[in-house]
Nucleic acid binder design. Structure first.
Lengths: 109, 109
DNA sequence: TACTAGTAGATAGTACCACTGACTAGTAGG
DNA sequence: CCTACTAGTCAGTGGTACTATCTACTAGTA
């Protein structure tokens, strides 16, 4: 992963994970795999797991432990009301930034 | 400035400043004022000055010192060839991220 | 003279977050 | 037994924006 992308992911990766959880509950390994499929090939598991712990502690997700057919039990994360509210804020912040950047890109032709 | 925005600016603020310099040379105070006008009202000068020193050390900009009618001499930054190349990379990285985010937003309806 | 506001830049210290690189635990196939 | 895959954890590092404060110069004003 380029250093540019690494820095740009700060702040946005969190929103991306919340957006994934807004579609349906998921566990860490699954989220990592999905993001990698979407092109973030070098994303490391450790980063996602740490992020999940963070948003759990902030109360944006509910957690249930479910047995897995293979490997240790999964921690399944579900976006709750507080998380949805925070996600909406995220989209607002994102929209603002994206608009400004698009504007700057146009100005530079 | 919200904490969300603060984190999101990591990685993108640099690109924004380079994009501003791609339009025309400018000095730090000017860049800060422009960004504030565009809605980043809480952006602090210190951040921009530190960023400018960084991109100068990396060789993305050329610097000339010009006397000011008011206050100490200005450091005018001009984007050079290396900086333009880096800016193009930035837009590529940004486009990729923005597309993925937009896709996630659609999926969540 | 002294004070204030505006212009212009610098910097030490802090917090946050993604990464690196390792580790534990469980299951299945050779 | 050994490897590979699944699933999660964690200490340490580096980069970046922030906070807060500082220097330096000019103009206006009381």
């Amino acid at each position: 992963m380029g250093k540019q992308m690494t820095e740009m992911l700060k702040g946005t990766l969190e929103g991306m994970v919340l957006a994934i959880l807004a579609v349906q509950p998921a566990h860490g390994y699954e989220i990592t795999a999905q993001l990698r499929d979407q092109g973030f090939t070098d994303l490391v598991e450790g980063t996602v797991y740490a992020l999940l712990i963070r948003i759990e502690q902030r109360g944006y997700v509910d957690v249930t432990k479910e047995p897995s057919e293979k490997g240790p039990p999964r921690k399944v994360y579900t976006l709750n009301a507080q998380g949805r509210e925070y996600l909406e804020e995220f989209w607002n912040t994102w929209s603002f930034l994206a608009e400004r950047l698009e504007q700057l890109r146009q100005e530079g032709k």
